[in-house]
Amino acid sequence: MKTGIIFDVKEFSLNDGDGIRTTVFFKGCPLRCIWCHNPEGFSSARELFLTQNGCTHCGLCQKSCSHPDCQGLGRCIHICPQGLVKAVGREVDATQLASEIRQAEDLLLFGGGVTLSGGEVMLQPEFAIELIEALKPLHVLIETCGYAPTETFSRVASHCDTVYFDLKLADRDLHRTYTGVYNDLILQNLAWLQNSGIDFRIRTPLIPGITDTDENLAAIATLAKCATVELLPYNPLAGAKYAGLGKNFTTQIQADHSRIRDTASLPDHFILK
């Protein structure tokens, strides 16, 4: 009976692997990529989320309340008539979550499955393993930033069917600048994965001026050793959810489509999603 903390379960997620999939978003991540579009995945703790659009400023949520699950959030989450004031982060039991997802097994079994994403799955290894086992025979794919002790990484990865491995920056220092950590562990885990026999795919988000440089993509091509690298276009709405968490999205990125088109000149095993 392992519990974990997640921030969303998304049905019919279209960009997280083959076929029709349900994606579970783990809460908590060791990286802080400046372009991240899922800031509710940063912290491993439950936190307040205020949807701004539709708020009539009635002030109801600011009145003090005695609900145990509102304590520490600074607002009452059980009062907004529009449901705009809520907590993100839900403690779930792995077996329970798996059985909820498996209700749609008659759809997910055929060519699709379940994707574990985040946040970072590897931060909750025991929960992840129990969830994967409970989801079987569904196909389970993990999307990971690759940052975890190799022992943990390899143990979790061995349970799943496919790994989507994010490789953002090949340069050690740049990696630290833009994600907050060095990529030593990530490269070490990539090397392990490449020799593991586990089905995997390398994915690189195309962040204009940061990851989509010729140098970086060439270096990633080398690291990939001819394996397919999937290039993910930059999400221009990346900053959308920061305000809801009371955070600022300060990153200035100009989505430059001409650069993305330039990738046509890259090696064959790069595919643009």
Binding site: L60, H78, C80, P81, G83, A104
Partner: peptide, 22 residues
């Protein structure tokens, strides 16, 4: 019309079980 009971309105509207969630 739920005028004096916003907490109940929230509960029924936002948190209550709904058809469409299997």
């Amino acid at each position: 019309n739920y005028r004096d009971d916003p907490e109940l309105l929230h509960l029924l509207r936002v948190e209550a079980p709904k058809m469409g969630n299997d």
